[in-house]
């Protein structure tokens, strides 16, 4: 346990610089987005009302009220989210491969530590999870701040204030990242973390058997996916509409846990018996 924490801490440290850059980009870009969007809205309003002598009502009719809704669809807002998502997806692979490649083969050190090799695996997985949750939290903190900036820039008559739920609801894909309910949270992140475990195992297949391992890894992913959706398949094809939604949900949780356990077991086996420097 102590070694797991040390390794976890170490893995966090290795990505920290990059991570802080991601955070900085997100903050700067989204806040810039709020300012830029608000300014351009206000200049539109100015032009409409003072230059073209239009009324405020007809302006609002034509342009609508300014709200976070206008902002969440800009590249300023979505760009950094996409960047973070892509970076973390790449990092799922990089967190392993970086130890094998280059002149400095750190994997020697990691595998020769007098501790269970699973600790290395779990430390890497925890790092990914914490990074993901960290970015989500950052977003949840940023939205109200951005709302406040918007309020300070746009007069109350021109704007529509939204709660954080409304902001999240204003944009479909966002609902995946920031679920409305605890159940949703479990589903989204349960599936997400399960996917990380499965991909980690596939990576270890590749690292153990190299070329042959790529095939094994893909097959492993396919099998895991089939097992995971098997209750849904059964419900859809074998005994249509036989189960209640709650029953399916519970079955999914059980199967999901089984897939995660299988992945951890398999990774443990590969790390101890098959892994290659």
């Amino acid at each position: 346990m102590k070694n797991y924490i040390k390794l976890f801490n170490f893995e966090l440290g290795r990505f920290l610089k990059f991570y802080l850059i991601l955070i900085a980009i997100t903050i700067v870009s989204q806040i810039t987005g709020v300012i830029v969007s608000s300014r351009s809205y206000l200049s539109d309003a100015n032009e409409f009302i003072y230059v073209n002598q239009g009324s405020m009502e007809s302006f609002l009719e034509q342009y609508g009220q300014m709200s976070m809704h206008n902002i969440t669809r800009t590249l300023w807002f979505l760009g950094p989210i996409a960047l973070c998502v892509v970076t973390l997806l790449i990092y799922i692979f990089f967190i392993w491969y970086r130890d094998w490649f280059g002149k400095n083969t750190f994997i020697y050190r990691l595998l020769m530590l007098p501790t269970a090799r699973m600790n290395v695996y779990l430390a890497k997985a925890s790092t990914i999870f914490l990074m993901v949750l960290g970015l989500i939290s950052l977003q949840l903190v940023l939205i109200p701040i951005e709302g406040t900036i918007l309020q300070s820039m746009v007069p109350v008559d021109f704007r529509l204030d939204m709660s954080i739920q409304e902001v999240i609801g204003s944009f479909d894909y966002f609902g995946i990242l920031v679920p409305y309910s605890f159940t949703q949270f479990i589903i989204h992140y349960g599936i997400g973390f399960m996917a990380v475990f499965i991909v980690f195992t596939a990576i270890l297949f590749e690292r153990s058997f190299r070329l042959k391992g790529i095939v094994l890894g893909i097959v492993y992913i396919a099998i895991s996916v089939v097992i995971f959706i098997s209750p849904l398949l059964v419900d859809a094809f074998l005994v249509p509409n036989y189960f209640y939604a709650i029953e399916l949900f519970v079955m999914e949780i059980v199967v999901g846990l089984l897939v995660i356990a299988g992945s951890i077991w398999m990774s443990n086996y590969l790390l101890n018996r098959k892994i290659r420097i």
């Binding site: 290795r14 280059g102 002149k103 400095n104 083969t105 750190f106 020697y108 050190r109 020769m112 420097i277």
Partner: peptide, 11 residues
């Protein structure tokens, strides 16, 4: 312990 021909620490 094993000392490989490449260094086992991060650059």
């Amino acid at each position: 312990t094993f000392i490989p021909d490449a260094i086992t620490m991060l650059p």
